[in-house]
Structure formats: structure tokens, C-alpha cells
Simulated assay, not measured.
Amino acid sequence: MDKASATGQLMFHLFAAFAEFERNLIHERSAAGRAAARARGRLGGRPEKLDKKELEMLKTLVANGTPITDIAQRWGVSRTTVYRYLEKE
């Protein structure tokens, strides 16, 4: 395709317009899919690693002086994750 000629420029702009149109369609479909999932109760994102019972046990272990590294190894998470859970509640 020769972009120097008027026909080449027209074709280039048409292809670009179609590409932009397709991208906008994908965006709209994705947004509609997320909205439909939310309506069905799905929130998205990664599931929580620890449930409420495990979180209470984690807090008890911390209160009893168990090292954070040991707690993290027990649940197979990083120390950062343990600290993040402690900050949440």
C-alpha cells in the first residue's frame, strides 16, 4: 500500500477506522459482560486466601507472639499477605 498516494492514504485511514471501531466494540462487550456478571453476584478479582475463621486464628497467633514468618509458612502465603490481612481488620 502506497501511503504517498491519495488512494493509499484513504485505504490506510479506512483500515485504521475499522480497527478503532472493532476495539470500541470489544470494550463495550467486555463492559456489558462485567455488568452482567455483577448482576449475577460475581464481583471479579482474585478470591481471598483466608476465610474469617482462619483470619481469627491468624490474629490469635500474632497476639500470642508467633513469628510472622511461621504464620506465613503455615498458610503458604508471604509475610506481606499476613501483614495485609492484619491491616484489613
Rank of each mutant, 00 (worst) to 15 (best):
M1G: 13
M1N: 07
D2G: 11
D2L: 03
D2N: 15
A4K: 15
S5E: 01
A6C: 03
T7F: 14
T7G: 03
Q9S: 05
Q9H: 11
L10Y: 12
M11Y: 12
F12E: 09
F12Y: 15
F12R: 14
F12P: 02
H13M: 14
H13C: 08
H13G: 06
L14R: 14
L14A: 05
F15E: 13
F15S: 10
A16S: 10
A17R: 11
A17S: 09
F18V: 11
F18S: 06
F18M: 13
A19P: 02
E20F: 07
F21Y: 11
F21W: 10
F21Q: 12
R23I: 04
R23L: 09
L25I: 10
H27S: 11
H27W: 08
E28S: 06
S30P: 01
A31N: 06
A31G: 03
A31K: 12
A32D: 11
G33H: 09
G33I: 11
R34Y: 13
R34P: 00
A35V: 05
A35I: 06
A35F: 08
A36Q: 09
A37H: 03
A37N: 05
R38K: 14
R38Q: 12
R38A: 08
R40H: 09
G41F: 01
G41N: 02
R42F: 14
R42G: 03
R42A: 06
L43C: 04
L43R: 15
G44N: 03
G45W: 04
G45D: 01
P47V: 01
E48H: 13
E48F: 02
K49Q: 06
K49W: 05
D51H: 03
D51G: 05
E54P: 03
E54D: 06
L55C: 11
L55W: 05
E56T: 11
E56F: 07
M57F: 05
M57P: 00
L58F: 01
K59H: 10
T60S: 12
L61N: 02
L61G: 00
L61H: 03
V62I: 13
V62W: 02
A63G: 08
N64Q: 15
N64K: 15
G65T: 03
G65M: 04
G65Y: 05
T66P: 00
T66M: 13
T66F: 02
T66E: 08
T66D: 01
I68H: 02
T69N: 10
T69F: 00
T69Q: 12
D70I: 05
I71H: 00
Q73H: 12
Q73M: 09
Q73K: 15
R74E: 04
R74T: 06
W75G: 00
W75D: 01
W75N: 00
W75K: 03
S78K: 01
S78Q: 04
R79E: 15
Y83M: 10
Y83R: 15
Y83Q: 13
Y85H: 08
Y85Q: 04
Y85E: 07
Y85M: 05
L86G: 01
E87L: 10
E89T: 11
